[in-house]
Write a protein that binds this DNA or RNA. Structure first.
Lengths: 101, 101
DNA sequence: ATGTTATATCGCAAATATACGATTGATGTT
DNA sequence: AACATCAATCGTATATTTGCGATATAACAT
């Protein structure tokens, strides 16, 4: 992405909302989050079984959701249990709710 | 984006939500929409004045918002007046609200 | 120590996204 | 008709995303 001479400054809420939205901007990631909302938690392996995607691809989607702060991983050896990050989930919820008024 | 042999089928709401989210996944587009919410409507030129981005870049962002159905353009020669697409805005609002419970 | 299991990361290819300047197109004015 | 104005599109460069298979890592079991 080519950028202007310097990065544009947006309000903090704008940047944050865009970051959350970007993480939600792929149907697989929406589906993963919906699954997590139902199940409350799940393992990477569960998702690999659900979606016709390679394990590495699922792992990458989980990484992005984690980077955006929407989920968090708990060690549960030898598996890793992923759950919604409730704190940030609330923040995202508020930002979107506010945005749509 | 390389794809599996065939495209994955998601529920309609999932695809739609992802499409809206993707459109919201850039701070400039969030800022444009916020501006439209305040002003109710505006011209491309107004935005070119507000953001330190080329006219063509703004136009491209508007195109994406239009493709996602979030805004619509009215002819108002020689300008084009952009407004929120209220019908789809409501749909997006409901999808996001539902998603976050 | 070796093996098993579950997940993450690497390296690659292809597709998309972001940005720009230049050009085109559409409309109204002289 | 010629010109001015505004916005869209084209062509291009670069960055990021998406996907895969292969490999690495981490933890437990044998």
């Amino acid at each position: 992405m080519k950028r202007s001479l310097e990065n544009i400054e947006y309000k903090e809420g704008t940047e944050l909302l865009a970051r959350f939205a970007k993480a939600l901007g792929h149907p697989t990631r929406i589906a993963i989050l919906k699954h997590l909302e139902n199940q409350s938690c799940c393992f990477t392996g569960d998702l690999v079984g659900i979606f016709p995607l390679a394990q590495s691809t699922i792992s990458q989607h989980l990484k992005e959701l984690k980077n955006a702060g929407l989920i968090q991983g708990e060690l549960n050896p030898p598996k890793i249990k992923y759950c919604i990050n409730k704190e940030n989930w609330e923040i995202a919820k508020k930002l979107f709710t506010n945005f749509f008024e």
